[in-house]
């Protein structure tokens, strides 16, 4: 009896949850395509592309903002990769004094919204002329993103099958060949996961960018903020979708890029 109820309830519950995730997306799409949303209509009035036109319009500055967002996110991710690769290898393979402490320090920043920490070294940023610059913002974005990259890569390194590296040496592969052909392919899923998280977090960042960028470095989140905070709902919706689209396309190309790399580095 109970189990039959269960069998019925689970699909209903899951469907409900999925709907709760999809309805907002649909609503955003409808909203962005309507000109006005009068009470008590469920859907906005006549279809119009005016919000999208506004968003795309050069005067709104959203395209440069999009570019800035991507530049920051991708650069930060690249730096993260370079920093996290050796660190993750160290954490995964060596037993050294203070390993736990190092890991804790590296992961701790994921717990605190970066703006709250950045305020503490804001002065140093000013002193080093890093405020109001993209490099400053990129540096600040390392704070919330690096932990995720370190975590993803550490898991990846820990699950590497080292017997395969040995095998490669036995077959005459030198260190770099072995890394390139045998180790790296095993790390790629971790690299993909870490990069995706790093890009997503950086793209979403708002307050840190505002504090360090001083309003001079305009990312998409900064440009859209006034519209989602009580501005024109239709434009806010268009911006939200533009953001989701940007994130989706970036993640998708990252995934394809990594997969392509993976298959192009096959032997033949």
């Amino acid at each position: 009896m109970v189990s039959r109820l269960f069998k019925l309830l689970i699909p209903v519950f899951l469907t409900g949850m999925v709907l709760l995730n999809i309805i907002p997306l649909l609503l955003l799409i409808f909203l962005s395509l309507g000109s006005s949303w009068m009470w008590p209509h469920l859907f906005p009035g006549p279809i119009s592309l005016s919000s999208w036109k506004y968003v795309i319009n050069p005067a709104a500055g959203s395209l440069p903002a999009l570019k800035t967002s991507l530049q920051i996110a991708l650069t930060a991710t690249l730096i993260n990769l370079i920093l996290a690769m050796p660190a993750a290898k160290s954490l995964a393979h060596y037993h050294f004094k203070g390993r736990k402490a190092c890991e804790l320090i590296l992961l701790l920043p994921a717990l605190i919204p970066p703006w709250a920490v950045i305020t503490g070294i804001h002065k140093t940023f000013i002193y080093l002329n890093l405020t109001d610059t993209m490099s400053g913002v990129i540096l600040a974005h390392l704070l919330p993103t690096l932990p995720y990259m370190v975590r993803a890569l550490t898991i990846s390194f820990a699950s590497i099958d080292y017997s395969l590296e040995e095998q490669a040496y036995l077959l005459g592969g030198n260190k770099s060949q072995t890394f390139f052909y045998i180790t790296l392919p095993q790390l790629l899923p971790g690299i993909a996961a870490g990069s995706i998280l790093s890009v997503l977090i950086s793209l979403s960042e708002y307050l840190t960018t505002l504090i360090i960028g001083g309003g001079q470095v305009l990312t998409l989140t900064l440009v859209m903020f006034p519209f989602v905070n009580g501005g024109n709902p239709s434009i806010g919706a268009a911006y939200s979708l533009l953001f989701a689209l940007m994130a989706l396309i970036t993640l998708f190309s990252l995934d394809t890029f990594i997969n392509r790399y993976y298959s192009e580095n096959k032997l033949y």
Partner: peptide
């Protein structure tokens, strides 16, 4: 200890 991401011929030709 075959390389799982390589085909048979890629494995054999690796060295």
């Amino acid at each position: 200890r075959l390389f799982p991401h390589f085909t048979v011929e890629e494995n054999v030709g690796f060295g």
